[in-house]
Design a protein around this nucleic acid. Structure first.
Lengths: 220, 220
DNA sequence: ATAATTTAATTAAACGTTTGTTTAATATCA
DNA sequence: TGATATTAAACAAACGTTTAATTAAATTAT
């Protein structure tokens, strides 16, 4: 019972910190701001987490659970073609980005900063785990002749980079797509589908077309 | 003579602030740090620029000059094909990113933060100017039949996103490319060429192949 | 079950630093 | 001499964190 209520407040603090760190960055968010947002005394943050920095670490660790090894089963799934696997990867990445954009902003922002190297290391290891799975999928496609010979690593960078680039800033997204001020990228099903369609078309052209082995069965 | 020396110190402060803001972010960098790095009294920053925030604005304004309208002449250049124009755009973006990665980190980080909206607006306007030129190039290619019908805006996002994604973090870049600790992405000519080759191959497949109108003359 | 006791949660206040900025005095140059 | 540049010192405000006192909850004893 005690442990239950304790966890409750901890998670209110965690989710409030997640939101604020995502919006304003780590240095740009004060402990008092987090406490105020969570409806909690500022001292509670040190009490529960030890320090602001440890709260940050706990936060990433906590949230990163959702990112762990979701592609590992897909790699060895023999009931779908390689290009279909790539399409699934695309849709899962998009889904993930739309589901918690602030968290991804936070991760990439932290990676681009030259601070807290151990944190950068932890984040890159988290992101790399999925990377390895996706690389295997593309490499298998090349080895089997289903895909053309491409730069595997940079191909993945193109998939992730497209999504990140478009969604890293609401204002930029609106201007690029020529949308009005009330357009909310993260809640637009149409945008989601548009990115998905573009990336699948891009990857189909990049990986399949003009290939000698036309195993592609117009998936999706 | 007086004005000369004045400008000199101003620019030392500007370049020091550029480096530090790029490395540690705006709120992660103190005025005293900048002053110390520039070999200058902290009071000089208020004296020359008024405030830390105005220094930041002056900095972006100052640096952004290099980004202004470099593609505008290219759009109406009739001596190169549309795909060649796309290749030129790719190489210029890469060149730019390798030349001043810290500045681009700063720009994209600032865009991803929900702070200083007027600054975000200024940055997005700067980036958009080039965007419009590139869009025209791709749209012209589609209209003339040289290119397939593609999602113009997202195609540009794929080009920029690939470059940004790969170069937004040294540690991540090393891990993705499986390089050792002494590998410096920003000084690697090989990496530069590799990104260029990948993006050209990607865009060739995306924009040209299986096209009814085979005007493409295997450029580059 | 109730009271006593121990443990945990919460608070307001203060801690010592660091923050960006200003001031007032001094140095440098035209 | 007069304007500009530069400095050390001080400013108030905000920072993350700690403390000590209090309230709430859980445990134990009666």
């Amino acid at each position: 019972m005690l442990l239950f209520k304790k966890m409750d407040k901890r998670e209110i603090i965690l989710s409030t910190a997640m939101k604020l760190f995502g919006q304003k960055g780590f240095e740009g968010t004060s402990v008092r701001e987090i406490a105020s947002g969570a409806g909690v005394n500022p001292a509670m943050i040190s009490y529960y987490f030890g320090s602001k920095e440890k709260l940050f670490e706990k936060l990433v660790e906590h949230k990163a659970a959702y990112l762990k090894g979701v592609f590992e089963e897909l790699v060895n799934n023999t009931s779908v073609t390689q290009i279909e696997k790539v399409f699934i990867v695309i849709d899962r990445y998009i889904e993930r980005m739309f589901h918690s954009p602030q968290f991804h902003h936070l991760l990439h922002r932290e990676l681009s900063l030259e601070r807290r190297p151990q944190m950068k290391n932890a984040i890159s290891e988290i992101l790399l785990r999925n990377f390895v799975s996706v690389r295997k999928i593309i490499q298998d496609g090349i080895d089997s002749g289903e895909f053309r010979v491409v730069d595997t690593e940079l191909t993945i960078a193109s998939i992730l980079g497209t999504i990140n680039h478009l969604l890293s800033s609401e204002i930029m997204c609106r201007k690029i797509l020529q949308k009005s001020k009330d357009f909310n990228p993260y809640q637009s099903k149409k945008l989601k589908d548009r990115i998905s369609d573009h990336l699948k078309q891009l990857m189909r052209a990049h990986l399949l077309e003009n290939s000698l082995h036309k195993k592609n069965k117009q998936a999706f």
